[in-house]
């Protein structure tokens, strides 16, 4: 049976996380695991178990949407989209934002592409 976490992730990102057999290839290729508190395949595992504590992990916010995992997944799972799903669940909550635009330190120095990317991913 599909649990609530799987259903919500499926709804937002269109990904069926049940297809994952936890081979760990996504985690092996991920460039940002050093900064993560949960490996990408573990994130999938949490969702499969219906454990919503995954929402409070840093990993989805460390994912930079580089799609290395998505390209390499033997089961065709768009892992980057799963991470986006987790971010969206949080961001859609009333008052939630990961980035305060008024607290960007080096705003003068940043090109618009950087500010826009961060604002679009982390504020809503």
């Amino acid at each position: 049976m599909v649990n609530e976490m799987e259903r919500r992730i499926g709804e937002i990102s269109g990904v069926n996380v049940d297809a994952c057999y936890l081979c760990g290839k996504c985690s092996a290729g991920c460039l940002f695991t050093e900064q993560m508190d949960l490996l990408p395949h573990q994130v999938i595992m949490y969702i499969q178990r219906g454990d919503d504590s995954v929402l409070n992990k840093e990993t989805p916010w460390i994912c930079a949407s580089c799609f290395t995992c998505s390209v390499r997944c033997p089961r065709g799972i768009d892992v980057a989209a799963v991470m986006e799903g987790l971010r969206e669940i949080q961001i859609r909550k009333r008052g939630y934002q990961k980035l305060d635009l008024k607290k960007i330190e080096n705003l003068e120095d940043l090109p618009q592409i950087a500010v826009t990317a961060a604002a679009q991913k982390l504020t809503w």
Binding site: I62, A64, L99, A114
Partner: peptide, 13 residues
């Protein structure tokens, strides 16, 4: 990947 938009909030990455 170069780290994408982390340059705004997590420059060290």
């Amino acid at each position: 990947c170069c780290g994408n938009y982390h340059t705004v909030m997590r420059k060290e990455i």
